[in-house]
Design a protein around this nucleic acid. Structure first.
Ligand SMILES: [Mn+2]
Ligand SMILES: [Mn+2]
Ligand SMILES: [Zn+2]
Ligand SMILES: [Zn+2]
Lengths: 143, 143
DNA sequence: TACCTTTCTGAAAGTCATTTTCATTTTCCT
DNA sequence: AGGAAAATGAAAATGACTTTCAGAAAGGTA
C-alpha cells in the first residue's frame, strides 16, 4: 500500500473526508525534498494553488503525522518541520547551523545502545530524537 | 574557577555589567534542580524577589547560555528549559511523556559513534541533542 | 439523482512563549 | 562625584501555531 492509499485508509478509519486540498497537499509534500515547515509548503503551494489557506496546510501536515505519513521534526529554530515517513527507514539528522543543510544518518549501534540505556532505567521508549548540530563540510571549509 | 566567577568573567569580556538581579538569578538557578523554564524560575524567584521582572529573568537565562553557564533544552512542549552546565559532565535525557520526569544518562559509546558518523560526513559537531521519549518505569507500570 | 448530515475550508481572530521597546534606574570607568 | 553605557521592568510587539465560524464540499442514504 503506497502512502496515498495509506492516507485514504487513515481518513476512512477516522471518519474524515477526502478533499481536493488534502490530495494536493499530500502529493506536493511527498513529491519533493523533506523537512518542510508549514510556511515552506504554503509558499510552494501558493504558486499553483493560491486558494489553499495556511491553516488548511498546517492542519493537514498535523494530520499526516497522526496518520503515520509524516513525522514532526524540531531543529530548535522555532519552526516545526514535517518529513515524509518511509516505511522501515528510521534515521536521525546532522544539521548545519550555518547553511541549514540537513544530512540524514542511520547508525544501528547507536539505536541498540540507546535501547540498552532505556532498559537499564525501566524506561519504555516511544520515540527519540538524535540531532548533531555544527558545520557541514562546505561550511567548515569556508570558515 | 567556579561558575559565579566564570559568569563575572564572561560579563567583563562582553562589556556587560554585573547587577544584583543577575547575581540573584544566577544563585537561584545554580542552587536548585535543573531544567528550569523561564516561567518556573520566575515563579520561584517571585517569592523572595517580586520586583524582578519576567523579561529580566528570560534575558539572563539566555545570557547564561551565551556564557556557557547553562544549556538550552527543548523537550517539545513549547517551552525552552535551561540547565546549569557542569564542567566535563555532558549528559543526555530520557523524558517521560506521561509525568514529565527527566532522567539523565551518559553513554560514552554513543558519543564515540556519533563522532564517527559526523567524521564520515566531514561534519564538525558543535553540540548535539539526544532525547529518548516514552514512559518512565512508574508510568509504564500504571498504564 | 436529490437530500441531508457531517466535515472541511479559509480568513480572521486568538493564544502563548518569547522578544522588543522605551523611560527610568543602575553600574562602573575616569 | 560626573557621566556614558548598559540594565531593568512594564507594556507592547512578534511570530508560530491554533481556534473560530460562516459558507462550501463530501459522501452516505433513499
Ligand atoms: Mn530526515
Ligand atoms: Mn539534564
Ligand atoms: Zn553548511
Ligand atoms: Zn513518568
Amino acid at each position: 500500500m503506497d502512502r496515498i492509499a495509506a492516507f485514504n485508509e487513515c481518513l476512512r478509519h477516522k471518519g474524515l473526508k477526502n478533499t481536493s486540498q488534502r490530495m494536493i497537499i499530500l502529493e506536493t509534500f511527498l513529491g519533493s525534498k523533506s523537512h518542510y515547515s508549514t510556511e515552506d509548503l504554503y509558499l510552494k503551494l501558493r504558486k499553483d494553488h493560491p486558494k489553499i489557506g495556511y491553516a488548511t496546510i498546517h492542519r493537514t501536515l498535523k494530520l499526516f503525522a497522526e496518520c503515520g505519513i509524516a513525522i514532526e521534526l524540531n531543529f530548535g529554530d522555532g519552526q516545526t518541520r514535517f518529513e515524509p515517513l518511509r516505511a522501515n527507514h528510521h534515521h536521525d539528522h546532522l544539521v548545519c547551523t550555518s547553511c541549514g543543510k540537513v544530512i540524514e544518518f542511520t547508525e544501528p549501534q547507536i539505536e541498540d545502545l540507546q535501547a540498552q540505556v532505556a532498559a537499564a532505567h525501566g524506561f519504555v521508549i516511544k520515540r527519540h530524537r538524535h540531532e548533531l548540530y555544527g558545520l557541514c563540510s562546505n561550511c567548515a571549509a569556508n570558515s
